[in-house]
Design a protein around this nucleic acid. Structure first.
Length: 404
DNA sequence: ATGTTC
């Protein structure tokens, strides 16, 4: 108590990963380089740490007095939403789900768009866009709403593979008072990973044009302008995930209930060890927002986990997934022995819908770390407790870009 | 990441 933040953390930079986790030297180098930025007080690498464009992904950074929009990057508000559907795993199959789902490309069906536009979050974002305070127009925001996007974004249907016993002996809630998630062992779940689509990228682009990669001084006009846009991108990204879920549920003729929605790309004012500053999460899932999902690759399990209360040494952050092992550009070569159709089924028996062949290879399970080692690292560090293991049934990725 | 881009 009363020690300085850096004394408490022992070092400015900490990495939470056990011996089983693949850590690329370049990613660790990026973590240290980023930790050297002025005003930066602490940096944490989570076990999904991997190299990005200058800044590492799977990392959290705490700065004081200034913060860094460029570090948050372009996909402001990207995150995971988990829905419980009323489908039963034993009554469906990957093939049945694929058939019912059909194509989910293109803009949101009009009825769902109107529903979304009735939401308070939409009205707030639209008001900013109409006032010229966002780099995207309302029409652009409408056009992207309810679309998954590319890269590592996906919507996935999963079965509950395993529930872990509660050490607190099964009573409601967990040790830190967070409400227990009502997970049905026979249920089918819908996991949506997407973000703010074009909006976040446009915010970053405009910001970098004006300020480069320098930090913004807290409280300055530029900082306030950025945070207003950033918060709009967070709201838009969350609404986008809800819209994706709604269109999937509609296609599946299923009802759904939102269990959690958590962003892993953002910057927030935060107090760490009593010091006020800014917490940047760059592909890092909050450990202070209740239960979260740590998804594996499309051919691996995903875990629902409960962050352990009172453990702040990882800057209140967790891995946001398995983390890449291979660069996207290496995947086609390394997986040359596979045909595209080989990659449309997985070792866990799930189906993959993805008409973009390049993306099919870039996002192959082989390109990702083993999620078990990532999750084990967090358990061993005392940061999480496992609630459930989910098994993929069907992973839906972006279709091919419309051609000609 | 991307109403991408040379």
């Amino acid at each position: 108590m009363g020690n300085s933040l850096q004394a408490n953390l022992r070092d400015k930079v900490r990495v939470f990963a056990n011996q089983q986790v693949w850590l690329e030297a370049n990613a660790v180098a990026q973590l240290h380089t980023t930790a050297q930025l002025p005003h930066m007080h602490a940096a944490v690498g989570l076990p999904d740490l991997h190299a990005g464009r200058g800044y590492p992904i799977g990392a959290a950074f705490f700065s004081i007095g200034h913060f860094y929009p460029a570090l948050v990057g372009g996909d402001i508000g990207c995150g995971m939403a988990l829905w419980r559907t009323d489908l039963k795993a034993h009554k469906t199959s990957p093939a049945k789900l694929e058939k019912r789902l059909g194509s989910q490309e293109g803009p949101l069906p009009e009825a769902l768009l109107h529903e979304a536009q009735a939401q308070a979050s939409w009205r707030a974002v639209q008001a900013l866009a109409d006032a010229g305070a966002l780099p995207s127009t309302t029409a652009m925001l409408e056009g992207s709403l309810g679309t998954i996007g590319g890269g590592n974004h996906f919507a996935e249907l999963l079965a509950c593979d395993r529930l872990y016993p509660d050490p607190a002996n099964g009573d409601e809630g967990s040790a830190d008072g967070a409400p227990a998630l009502a997970l049905d062992p026979r249920g089918v779940y819908l996991l949506v990973h997407s973000g703010s689509r074009g909006l976040g990228g446009a915010i970053l682009r405009e910001h970098v044009q004006a300020h480069g990669h320098a930090g913004l001084r807290a409280g300055s006009a530029a900082a306030q302008d950025y945070l207003r846009q950033h918060d709009a991108a967070l709201a838009y990204a969350q609404l986008n995930r809800a819209c994706i879920a709604q269109r999937f549920l509609r296609a599946l003729r299923a009802e759904g209930e939102l269990l959690l929605d958590v962003s892993h790309n953002h910057v927030h004012a935060a107090c760490i060890d009593g010091l006020p500053g800014y917490l940047h999460r760059k592909g890092a899932t909050p450990a202070d927002a209740g239960p979260v999902v740590i998804p594996g690759s499309r051919g691996d399990y995903s875990y629902v986990v409960q962050p352990v209360a009172g453990r702040h040494e990882a800057l209140d952050s967790l891995a946001h997934g398995a983390g890449r092992k291979w660069a996207r550009s290496d995947c086609a070569g390394r997986l040359a022995r596979f045909h595209a159709d080989d990659l449309r089924k997985t070792r866990l028996g799930s189906a993959v819908v993805c008409s973009d062949k390049e993306l099919l290879f870039e996002e192959a399970p082989q390109a990702y770390k083993e999620v078990d080692a990532v999750v084990a690292s967090l358990v061993e560090a005392g940061l999480i407790r496992l609630l459930a293991r989910l098994r993929p049934l069907l992973t839906y990725k972006k279709g091919a870009a419309p051609c000609c």
